[in-house]
Amino acid sequence: MSDQPLLNVRGVSKFYGSRIGCTDVSFDLWPGEVLAIVGESGSGKTTLLNCLATRLMPTTGCVQYRMRDGNLRDLYQMSDAERRFLMRTDWGFVHQNPADGLRMTVSAGANVGERLMAVGNRHYGNIRNTASDWLERVEIAQDRIDDQPRAFSGGMRQRLQIARNLVTSPRLVFMDEPTGGLDVSVQARLLDLVRGLVSDLGLAVIVVTHDLAVARLLSHRMMVMKGGRVIEQGLTDRVLDDPREPYTQLLVSSILQV
């Protein structure tokens, strides 16, 4: 891991009138680190994720990202065009519903190829070959390259969305409940695939999940949210094996009793 954080988050809050989305969240994320943000529905974890990924503007706070030149940039001081470019190239965002992260009416190959074109690739043969290689990496048969995502199962769509996000070698990937809505057996395969890719590519990942098993399998560190606040954070194994806060203890024990 680098000796400098990739992301600096300080005092991020999001209010909807008098309602708290999230409040006073601060942490650093390091290159190659996977951070899980966990909590029940309504805990504020998705609001926080959307603030970090610049999909929502926080009410207060600062998020700084270390660009490839080593300089820290305040994400909210960037222009919309700069943020969009970052999202298309250096970042990825994996949606819970893959239809939100794919173009459903173009081919699987074109979904992957679009990201390559965003970083300047123009050679059709090279783009197609790279797309084909990535389909294989996410366990989609290469002869499906010209099929549209709407012909795929939910698990295949999610794997295609992951390929679309990772093909440009991003340094930071946001994942919002990446296994939500999938059958348990499909979830297990997807998690194995994601864990392998994250490790191979040295990605930094922020993953939001209500599933502590997902957090344990994927993350190095985790933050537990309740009512918009981070109430406990630490190394994943420590938090899950020795939770200090009563709410975290309740979350962990409820999983064990299922």
Results as ranks from 00 to 15, higher is better:
residue 131 A to E: 02
residue 24 D to S: 12
residue 180 G to K: 06
residue 112 V to K: 00
residue 219 S to E: 11
residue 194 V to N: 03
residue 33 E to T: 09
residue 229 R to G: 08
residue 75 L to Y: 01
residue 238 R to K: 11
residue 200 D to R: 11
residue 195 R to D: 03
residue 234 G to C: 10
residue 211 D to W: 02
residue 181 G to R: 02
residue 128 R to F: 01
residue 151 A to F: 03
residue 194 V to E: 08
residue 43 S to E: 05
residue 117 M to Q: 07
residue 188 A to C: 02
residue 108 A to R: 09
residue 6 L to M: 14
residue 111 N to A: 10
residue 41 S to I: 01
residue 55 R to T: 09
residue 250 L to Q: 11
residue 213 A to R: 13
residue 113 G to P: 01
residue 238 R to P: 05
residue 97 N to F: 14
residue 116 L to Q: 00
residue 161 Q to S: 12
residue 171 R to W: 00
residue 168 T to V: 04
residue 133 D to T: 04
residue 251 L to V: 04
residue 245 E to S: 07
residue 215 A to H: 07
residue 105 T to V: 14
residue 154 G to P: 06
residue 60 T to V: 12
residue 77 Q to A: 13
residue 250 L to R: 08
residue 256 L to S: 12
residue 205 V to R: 10
residue 13 S to V: 10
residue 152 F to R: 06
residue 109 G to Y: 02
residue 243 P to V: 04
residue 142 Q to K: 08
residue 23 T to S: 15
residue 77 Q to M: 07
residue 250 L to Y: 08
residue 100 D to Q: 14
residue 204 A to E: 07
residue 110 A to S: 13
residue 1 M to W: 00
residue 14 K to M: 09
residue 227 G to M: 04
residue 191 L to R: 09
residue 132 S to A: 05
residue 143 D to Y: 07
residue 239 V to I: 15
residue 76 Y to G: 11
residue 178 P to N: 00
residue 204 A to F: 04
residue 204 A to Q: 09
residue 170 P to L: 00
residue 44 G to H: 14
residue 182 L to C: 02
residue 141 A to Y: 04
residue 137 R to F: 11
residue 10 R to M: 09
residue 250 L to A: 11
residue 228 G to P: 10
residue 63 V to Y: 10
residue 240 L to E: 04
residue 106 V to M: 06
residue 26 S to F: 05
residue 152 F to M: 06
residue 12 V to G: 08
residue 206 I to Q: 07
residue 217 L to A: 04
